[in-house]
Design a protein around this nucleic acid. Structure first.
Length: 854
RNA sequence: GCCCGUGUGGCGGAAUUGGUAGACGCAGCGGAUUCAAAAUCCGCCGCCGCAAGGCUUGCCGGUUCGAGUCCGGCCACGGGCACCA
């Protein structure tokens, strides 16, 4: 009898699949199609156990759907543009393209031994000119349809390196290399008009039934529809062409609590004042210091500058309010100006206290002690649906909810001619310009005569030049001696290419559509897209819940408008699953200076939950940390595959933890998985040589088998892979102990192999072949549970007395309620508890439980 | 700061979605087999308690015949915050 030897068995079956073309996707009208996609990887260098987990989940679905008779598309590619390639070039002097393609080669070579059922013939990288050339064509189509435009926007500016910084490159408000205080600077940039789709992208979330509710909620909050009042405060004394400050507020009901007007440092009035008043300029410069992230803005100390300007309250011309420039007001949202109501907004309250401005409550709680903010309390900000007592209503009841008050306030103001109710969205347009080399060039030419001119489609792709250097900060495309020089596509005179490249989110916003026809000479082939789209199951990290998924939803709409996708693909992902990370303990000691030193798992010996180095030094164990190269806690799947085989790696990453949650990689867990697979192999091999006659044990084993089919199928369908695997353990135990006849055992073992085949495909093929299965198990139809084998004639019901389990009774499956009651009351424990009395209440939940209330 | 999650034995987790909390696995303990070991097989295994029994799903409170599951309030940890991918 041969031992379980994945090192020979796995390549054998991979070759068999390749020869049979099992996973090459071809259009076919005989079968329903199924498109399963995992978010494609960034080619960081080597694959990571997290990749193994993600792609194994997708592979389970792909192989299961294949067995269910679907024509499956399961492709793989690489999200290959981005900063790390440039950073590597800066650090080691190589070229981003070499670094990237070499990483891709490595990662493909690492992924293939895992036996994923992928159609490798469709592979591409987003840095392939064939791909990004089509992306440039999409950009031009979007431009023609008015979906792209140019405007000014702020970026992080490093004043020492004289370069734009990504948010990631800003650490505590300073440039990562120069250490200089980062400033916010305006640049003219390209934008996608995603905000035109705000309402649609929000409303369409309702139709995404197979998306996690939390993702839809996050997207809804991100898009952020709000109803409010837009109105103007008139300036007491007009200044430099401005006689009013236009304001948008979601709380017009608190207008009588107004205390000041705040404008953004980027507001036209602020800029006007800045140009003429050095003190304003100084303040604005200070306010623009620091990074551009919302987090940085929100956490920054709230600063204000009294412009000296005064506005009149719209309800009372004698009531004047000061106008402040404030660093926490965003020009991008609303009108870039607000009215401050300190009593009902903590930020406004902090600001008012800092600058000695009045605080006026407009409502108080219905009951209970309430320390008003004007008396030193916190800002009172109850949820809008809650009823409160109004001290300063305009035209609504003294007791009303915030929602009622807002509606009434808007109609009151509209009636008085003070502004109008408007709907606004928080979602901003998507700035796609990046001042970097390793990205898709924006196919635009700047001509002195013609201005901004789109490149002609026949000149695509606009390819990146190969000869660039990264020895100085900034965009190498700007410094390149010849690349940007090009004739104007309109007039033919010498002109200059746009040197900005596209955000890498653009690359990942349509790759799923490209997979349906990866070699097409247009962005997509409409027939292929019509056949394969939509993605039936998309799988990826929760960290992409907002941006990537929202951008892809926008792109699908824009591509549909331009004729690159069918109408049905406006929502490109029918079902979404967000998986958790694979984590690993960090092993840490401290050096002489108290700085942490990180140790590789192989260097650490674990004893009784404590870890020791070879020399006996104890290490501190930090559990469940995100794997990170710098912490030396990255587990390389290549080692796992070499030691235990691909099936063990696949089995382990699916077992134990539910897929949406993080899983901690432990060496012990991997070993246990390997042992179990060897055991399954051994049991199957024994069965292959068994000739026991049919007997009484056959039916119980077949019952277990049908139960396993039912549970595993449910598990796979609902992403309960860990529960499905637990069931497979139980079924294996039952099979191992069974004394049934050879025929029944053979049937059970073949079914076990089929149920395991999505997770451990190589071992499953081996067992299938061993037991005389026909063809490849990958193509065998999925087993179906026989309903009549799933239930028994009797059922055991727990008996609770006052909600605590005290006993149990066994009754016929279809026993009537009265019979169950009779049995329950006759039970010893119940009799004892009743002590001759009658129960107050008797609850019988058929098939579930009995509760006797005494 | 804002938005969204998560929290169950020594550990990873299960629980038919309001109905027996702890399936399955790891670790641990005991045993069989072995000259011995590896491998394998069998059994035990939430906490307190000699026991009867009591307690137990991050903490506090509520709804219910019944709460891990629903509601309110806390605490801790994680993801996202528009130029990381």
């Amino acid at each position: 009898m041969s031992r379980y030897d994945p090192a020979t068995l796995e390549p054998k079956w991979q070759a068999a699949w390749a020869e049979a073309g099992t996973f090459v996707a071809q259009r076919s009208d005989d079968k329903p199609k199924y498109y399963v996609l995992e978010m494609f990887p960034y080619p960081s260098g080597r694959i990571h156990i997290g990749h193994v987990r993600n792609y194994t989940m997708g592979d389970v679905i792909a192989r299961y759907k294949l067995a269910r008779g679907f024509n499956v598309l399961h492709p793989m590619g690489f999200d290959a543009f981005g900063m790390p390639a440039e950073n590597a070039a800066m650090a080691s002097g190589g070229h981003p393209a070499d670094w990237t393609y070499s990483n891709i080669d490595t990662m493909v070579a690492q992924m293939k031994p895992l036996g994923f059922g992928l159609d490798w013939s469709r592979m591409f990288a987003t840095c392939d000119p064939e791909y990004y050339g089509q992306q440039q064509a999409l950009f031009l189509d979007f431009l023609e349809k008015g979906l792209v435009y140019r405007k000014n926007a702020v970026v992080n500016w490093d004043p020492v390196d004289m370069t734009v910084l990504a948010n990631e490159q800003v650490i505590d408000g300073k440039g990562w290399r120069s250490g200089a205080d980062v400033e916010r600077r305006e640049l003219t940039q390209w934008f996608f008009k995603i905000s035109d789709f705000s309402g649609e992208l929000l409303d369409a979330l309702d139709g995404l039934d197979d998306w996690p509710a939390k993702v839809k909620l996050m997207q809804a909050n991100w898009i952020g529809r709000s109803r409010g009042l837009q109105f103007a405060f008139g300036l007491v004394e007009p200044t430099r062409g401005h006689d009013r400050v236009e304001v948008y507020t979601t709380r017009p009901d608190t207008l009588l609590g107004a205390s000041f007007v705040g404008i953004s440092p980027d507001h036209p009035i602020a800029k006007e004042l800045e140009a003429h008043d050095p003190k304003v300029a100084e303040f604005c410069a200070q306010a623009r210091r620091g990074g551009t992230t919302e987090e940085a803005l929100e956490k920054a100390e709230k600063l204000g500058f009294d412009t000296g300007l005064r506005v009149r309250h719209p309800f009372d011309t004698a009531w004047e309010l000061p106008v402040y420039i404030a660093n926490f007001i965003l020009m991008d949202y609303g009108t870039g100006a607000i009215f401050g109501c300190p009593a009902h907004d903590q930020r406004d309250l902090d600001f008012a206290r800092k600058y000695g401005l009045p605080v006026i409550s407009t409502f108080v709680p219905l009951k209970g002690d309430h320390l008003k903010p004007e008396d030193g309390g916190e800002a009172y900000v109850p949820p809008k649906p809650d009823k409160v007592r109004w001290t300063l209503p305009f035209n609504w009841a003294e007791e009303a909810t915030g929602e009622e008050a807002i509606d009434a306030a808007i109609s009151f103001c509209e009636g008085k001619g003070v502004g109008q109710g408007v709907t606004k969205f928080r979602l901003r347009d998507w700035g796609l310009s990046r001042q970097r080399y390793w990205g898709c060039p924006i196919p635009i030419v700047h001509c002195d005569d013609c201005g901004v001119v789109p490149e002609k489609k026949e000149n695509l792709p606009v390819e990146l030049p190969r000869d660039v250097s990264f020895d100085t900060p900034g965009n190498p495309l700007d410094r390149h001696p010849t690349w940007a020089a090009t004739p104007c596509p309109a007039c033919g005179k010498p002109a200059r290419r746009e040197t900005d490249t596209m955000d890498t989110f653009v690359d990942s916003s349509w790759y799923f559509a490209r997979f349906t026809a990866p070699r097409a000479t247009t962005p997509t082939d409409l027939e292929d897209a019509a056949y394969w789209m939509n993605v039936d199951q998309y799988i990826g990290g929760i960290e992409h819940a907002i941006l990537h998924l929202l951008y892809s939803r926008f792109f699908a709409r824009a591509m549909q408008i331009c004729g690159h996708l069918p109408e049905k693909s406006k929502e490109p992902f029918n079902a979404l699953f967000t998986q958790g990370m694979v984590t690993h303990a960090i092993f840490q000691t401290k050096d002489a200076n108290g700085r942490p030193v990180y140790h590789y798992p192989e260097e650490v010996e674990l004893r009784d939950g404590r870890g020791f180095l070879k020399d006996g030094t104890e290490v501190e164990i930090i559990p469940s940390a995100k794997m990170s190269k710098s912490k030396n806690n990255v587990v390389d799947p290549v080692n796992i595959i070499a030691t235990y085989g691909a099936d063990t790696a696949r089995w382990f990453v699916l077992s134990d933890s539910p897929p949406e949650r993080d899983v901690e990689w432990t060496a012990a867990g991997a070993e246990a998985a390997a042992k179990h697979l060897a055991r399954v192999h051994r049991i199957a091999a024994e069965i292959a040589g068994d000739d026991t006659a049919p007997n009484d044990a056959d039916t119980p084993l077949l019952r277990e088998m049908h139960k396993a089919i039912f549970d595993v199928t449910n598990g796979v369908e609902s992403f309960g892979f860990n529960a499905a695997i637990a069931k497979l353990y139980a079924f294996t135990n039952a099979l191992g102990k069974s004394t049934a006849g050879a025929a029944a055992k053979r049937q059970a073992a073949k079914t076990l192999a089929q149920l395991m085949s999505p997770m451990t495909p190589h071992l499953a093929e081996e067992i299938w072949a061993m037991l005389g299965g026909e063809g490849l198990i990958a193509n065998a139809p999925w087993p179906v549970a026989n309903e009549s084998m799933l239930t028994s004639d009797t059922v055991t019901l727990p008996i609770q007395i006052n909600g605590k389990r005290r006993s149990e009774i066994t009754v016929a499956k279809d026993a009537s309620k009265e019979e169950v009651e009779k049995h329950a009351l006759a039970d010893d424990a119940v009799q004892k508890a009743l002590a001759g009395g009658q129960p107050k209440k008797l609850i019988v939940v058929p098939g579930r439980i009995v509760n006797v209330v005494i």
